[in-house]
Amino acid sequence: MLSEDDIHKVAELARLNLSEQQISELRPQLSKLIDYVAVLEEVDTDEVEPMVHAIEQTNVFRDDIRSPPLPREGALANAPKTDGKYFLVPQIIEH
């Protein structure tokens, strides 16, 4: 069973504000899933290369040729908060 602390840590990494109720629901659900997927332990994969892609191709490139950017209005159109030039975010505290 995942501990409450585990859940808090993961939620913080994932940037989710989970309520105590959500945490108490998620704990058993995630624990059950984690237990379930642990079945993979029984597979011998010592000599197996991880498979990242469903089809294996390499060297997919594009040429270094420009195409037009979005107009600024288009770039900002869906943003929750802008000043018409920039995306605005709550103050970033760096030090």
């Binding site: 995942l2 585990d6 859940i7 840590k9 993961v10 939620a11 990494l13 994932a14 989710l16 989970l18 959500q22 998620l26 659900q29 995630l30 899933l33 984690i34 997927v37 993979l40 332990e41 597979v43 994969t45 197996v48 290369e49 991880p50 498979m51 990242v52």
Partner: peptide, 28 residues
């Protein structure tokens, strides 16, 4: 949220090899 939590957990430090990398191998 459930899947984000699950995915974040299996990629997180200390678990990625046991879960994510293992799954990629079984996938092959």
């Amino acid at each position: 949220k459930r899947r984000i939590m699950m995915g974040t957990y299996t990629l997180s430090a200390g678990y990625i090899d046991a879960y994510y990398v293992k799954a990629l191998k079984v996938r092959r």
